[in-house]
Design a protein around this nucleic acid. Structure first.
Length: 494
RNA sequence: GCAGCCGUAGCUCAGUUGGUUAGAGCACCAGAUUGUGGAUCUGGGGGUCCCCCGUUCGAGCCGGGGCGGCUGUACCA
């Protein structure tokens, strides 16, 4: 009576299985993105999932928190390895390792899985896909402007209409200038600077008031949890908020506002000038309506050194429960001039953009973009097994179909005819091939058009009638099998 | 990590003040129909009531702890 404990079949939390429909749709989406990237002259490169931990970031796992944020393990030589958590750090390693052989500026793209050991949630996974493009070795902001325009083209290519998205651009140097002006310039203030950065990053969610609290003493959220703030003085807070609110009616006026906010800071002014140049470049190619300067964009990562960008969807969609879904950013990036330089003696400028494939994918589903909602592929033709001693003959039919380029399979289960029909139905099979002794004696096969049949079924109420009618079923000489099946398939294509 | 809510069949959920053998719909399987996917009817399989400990004559229900899920918040190099 005591049953042995069965293993519970379940995927680890934060990890998801993907079915055939999603695989095909993702494949189409990736192909569209790749097409745009190649059009811009970027070339593919692939790096492994695993890197030495110190190549990924600054911290080695320690005893207390060996896997904080990143999945890590030790090799047999005791070196720490980690699953990559983005595609940028591995690219920096790749470029540094192959520096002399690569053309510079080096432009490359790559898509792949990345892993983060964090709390998962809806739309937040511990394994997800990114699609990156980077230009390494170009210090000019023309490289940044190009990335922004490419991001805009990419979103349109995958089916997001112009006007439904924005590429927002800012510059870390401007923010640095502001922080310098309020006395947060030194290395010893790095922690506080990061707190300020993250507070600004929450502007879209918490609004100016919430950010004001986070910049000052702190903020209590609706669950009663308290978040300690950056402890800035009131006038410093106003200065930071003025910076985030510096967006004007157009890019030119935004730049003008920023010049005011940074005051005398040389670094801040440099940043504002870079933004002005990006605005000019973008406008020259006609992208000024979808590439806008927005000082509220800061990005959470601290390795950015110059322009930063974020691709945001601007339309609203309601979920099944009628609540508005906020997509947030579907991609982002920026200039990271220090990242490759960690491996080399000379500094190497670089800038890049990363698309959150999984997030973009669910957004495309919401707007029914044809690229992900295209009709799913029909299943294979199923050859039924009517007489078990005739399997060889059935298999021959399958082979004939296959060698004529028609997806086909032999029913490999052990159930009766009714179950085989159900199987074909569930496989989305366009038609079933039937040959019992009656047909065999006449040298014929029965072909049942399952799609036509399903339509016909709607008009039939009684089972007796259903059986007698045998809707959408016809018999052909065995030699005509391929032609007849082709005929059925051609009726259902498109 | 912190806080709030939640956990009963594959799914969505009922389940009375603690009371016999825990239910429904959908899904699945089979039969009605010895060779025909739909519909209809009939029947069937499927449960560690998240886990452990406790209270009780008796726990799906009460208490404690744990695990898991959702929401918010934090973290995300």
């Amino acid at each position: 009576m005591s049953k042995p404990d069965k293993l519970k079949a379940r995927a680890p939390r934060g990890f998801a299985d993907r079915g055939p429909a999603e695989l095909a749709a993702t494949e189409r989406m990736l192909a569209a993105i790749r097409e745009v990237y190649e059009l811009y002259g970027f070339e593919g490169v692939e790096t492994p999932f695993v890197e030495y931990t110190d190549a990924l970031g600054k911290f080695l796992p320690d005893q207390d928190r060996p896997n904080e944020g990143v999945f890590s393990f030790q090799d047999d030589d005791e070196q720490w390895l980690s699953l990559r958590y983005d595609l940028t750090a591995p690219l920096a390693r790749y470029v540094a390792e192959n520096f002399d052989a690569l053309p510079k500026p080096y432009r490359s793209y790559r898509a792949g899985w990345v892993f983060r050991n964090e709390k998962p949630g809806p739309g937040r996974f511990r394994q997800f896909m990114q699609f990156d493009a980077d230009t390494v070795g170009a210090a000019s902001v023309a490289a940044d402007a190009e990335i922004c325009m490419m991001a805009a083209d990419t979103l349109e290519k995958v089916g997001i209409k112009r006007g439904d998205f924005l590429i927002k651009v800012n510059n870390r140097k401007v923010l640095d200038g502001v922080l310098e002006a309020i006395g947060l310039g030194g290395d010893d203030k790095a922690g506080q600077r990061l707190t300020v950065l993250r507070a600004i990053d929450k502007l879209d969610r918490l609004g100016p008031e919430g950010v004001r609290q986070l910049l000052g003493a702190g903020r209590k959220d609706e669950s009663g949890d308290f978040t300690k703030g950056a402890q800035l003085a009131p006038e410093a807070i106003e200065r930071v908020l003025a910076f985030t609110a510096a967006k004007g009616a157009d890019n030119a006026s935004t730049v003008e506002n920023l010049r005011q906010v940074v005051g005398s800071s040389a670094r801040g002014l440099e940043g504002a000038n870079e933004l002005a140049e990006i605005a000019t470049l973008v406008a020259a190619s006609g992208y000024e309506d979808r590439t806008i300067i927005d000082p509220s964009v800061v990005r959470g990562l601290e390795y950015y050194t110059g322009p930063v960008y974020e691709a945001e969807l601007t339309f609203q969609v309601a979920d099944e429960d009628g609540r508005p879904v906020r997509f947030g950013s579907v991609g982002g990036g920026g200039r990271y001039d220090g990242l490759v330089g960690r491996f080399r003696s000379e500094p190497v400028p670089a800038t890049g953009f990363s698309i959150g494939v999984s997030r973009l994918f669910s957004a495309l589903r919401m707007v029914n973009s044809p690229i992900v909602s295209g009709a799913q592929m029909p299943g294979p033709v199923v050859v039924l097994v009517m007489d078990k001693d005739q399997v060889a003959a059935y298999q021959r039919m399958v082979s004939t179909l296959r060698s004529n380029g028609i997806r086909a399979e032999l029913y490999l289960g052990s159930s009766g005819m009714k179950a085989q029909m159900k199987y074909a139905d569930k496989r989305q099979s366009p038609c079933a091939i039937i040959q019992g002794s009656n047909e065999r004696e006449r040298g014929e096969v029965e072909i049942k058009d399952l799609i036509e049949g399903a339509k016909a079924a709607e008009a039939i109420a009684s089972n007796a009638e259903w059986k007698a009618a045998r809707p959408a079923q016809f018999s052909v000489p065995e030699a005509k099998l391929v032609d007849a099946v082709r005929d059925v398939l051609s009726r259902h294509v498109g």
